[in-house]
Design a protein around this nucleic acid. Structure first.
Length: 368
RNA sequence: AGUUCCAUUGUGUAAAGGUAGCACAACUGAUUUUGGUUCAGUUAGUCUAGGUUCGAAUCCUGGUGGAACUA
């Protein structure tokens, strides 16, 4: 019956993953659904989220779809690994004065390995998710290509996946546009899914208040860091802030300081609990150093290689050249880029293909 | 305890007798599988008590508060 193979599909209960499962089922794959429990919503409060990469709220929907179409569905409790890794890393990074991207950490270190482990146990050939991206193979390497729908492309959050995982991953939505997926959900008999709004927010911060989450998670943090100085680049003190972990590079809103011009956070200095503010031009950087690199399309960066580099999720990318530098990659942009935040992911593209990616280590003029 | 100057939304500033406006901040919404950005919209002010005037932020008097100068 499974002419195409057996596939474990990560189902959140949202529109994208549900359509993914049904699409593969229709195509003749033997589908097994799985919903990962990453975080305990009962204790976290909130819960009006709809589709998402990792929420449990609509896990009943996932199960219902599986039952209706006659394939099995499991729940996988990965709260422990998720908490130990993703949440601790998230907190540690902010305390280090950096800006983490927990979705990337989860995809790279938790979600796919948990899926793969389960896939092996269940005898599945593949794993699949509802990400908007495509997996291609060339010269013996598997890589991710941007989804056809540029506005929904999620290749950015998948840069960390190793070859061993990519070779067994299916991303069936990558060739479609979101509007087509909505139509499919509708046609497949899930009109209410088709209407669900997009998810946002970090899955373990349902109220969208990461500052509050940090305070609750590290009880003495607030008292320890409250009342540091806002300064300008030249060191002039212009005000008091609520503690360096509660700010991020490029931030404009919430500074509660009126200087007549829009001011942005340009530097975070944990050692002195100082947050440096500057005008828009001061956010511009033309170089950065990227560490923790995972190569995807190619097995290495050749010095001077040209690439389109994204420094945040919704970023059209900026042309740059890449150079190897002591185990890291130095990126030199062709033009200044605004608000590069250490801790965020940098993803290198060759056209629509992900060459590789890493974490932004530092920015600014670097010694060559 | 003398003289002078000043007082306008949360902050900084416009309005030289005729609709109190701008920037920043704040709030709300749109956008977004991270943070952030961006966009749209909203709120909110003439220190106080009198006077002149058809009409006062604006002119006059007292008060209050701040700044500069005076021995």
């Amino acid at each position: 019956m499974s002419t195409k193979g057996k596939v474990l599909v990560a189902m959140s209960g949202g529109i994208d993953s549900t359509v993914t499962a049904l699409m593969l089922h229709k195509e003749g794959y033997e589908v097994v659904g799985i919903t990962m429990k990453t975080w305990d919503y009962a204790t976290a409060g909130g819960g009006k989220k709809e589709t998402g990469c990792c929420n449990l709220d609509s896990f009943n929907d996932a199960r219902a779809a599986a039952v209706e179409h006659g394939f099995p569905h499991f729940i996988l409790d990965i709260r422990e690994e998720f908490g130990d890794f993703v949440i601790n890393n998230f907190v540690d990074e902010y305390i280090a004065g950096r800006t983490p991207n927990p979705c990337v950490m989860c995809n790279t270190h938790i979600k796919w390995s948990a899926l793969l482990k389960r896939a092996d146990a269940l005898g599945c050939d593949y794993i699949a998710t509802g990400h908007y991206g495509m997996i291609e193979e060339e010269n013996g390497r598997f890589f991710i290509r941007k989804g056809v729908d540029e506005t929904k492309d999620q290749s950015y959050v998948l840069w960390g996946l190793p070859q061993s995982v990519l070779s067994r991953t299916l991303l069936p939505l990558g060739g479609y546009r979101k509007t087509e997926i909505r139509q499919m959900a509708h046609d497949m008999g899930y009109p209410e899914l088709a209407k669900k709004s997009e998810s946002y927010e970090i899955c373990f911060v349902p109220d969208n208040d990461y500052r509050g989450f940090l305070k609750r998670h590290v009880p003495d943090l607030e008292a320890r860091v409250d009342g540091g100085n806002f300064t300008l680049a030249d060191g002039t003190i212009v005000g008091k802030h609520k503690g360096y972990p509660f700010y991020t590079i490029g931030q404009r809103k919430g500074l509660d300081i009126a200087l007549g011009k829009p001011m942005y956070v340009t530097q975070i200095l944990p050692e002195t609990n100082t947050v440096v503010l500057g005008e828009e031009e001061e956010l511009q950087q033309q170089q950065m150093l990227v560490g923790g690199v995972n190569m995807v399309k190619f097995d290495m960066v050749s010095d001077g290689m040209e690439a389109l580099v994204k420094i945040r999720y919704k970023d059209r990318g900026t042309p740059a050249r890449l150079y190897n530098e002591a185990g890291k990659i130095r990126v030199t942009f062709y033009e200044p880029v605004k608000g590069i935040a250490p801790g965020q992911s940098a993803v290198f593209y060759d056209g629509d293909d992900v060459i590789g990616g890493g974490f932004i280590h530092k920015t600014g003029q670097l010694q060559a």
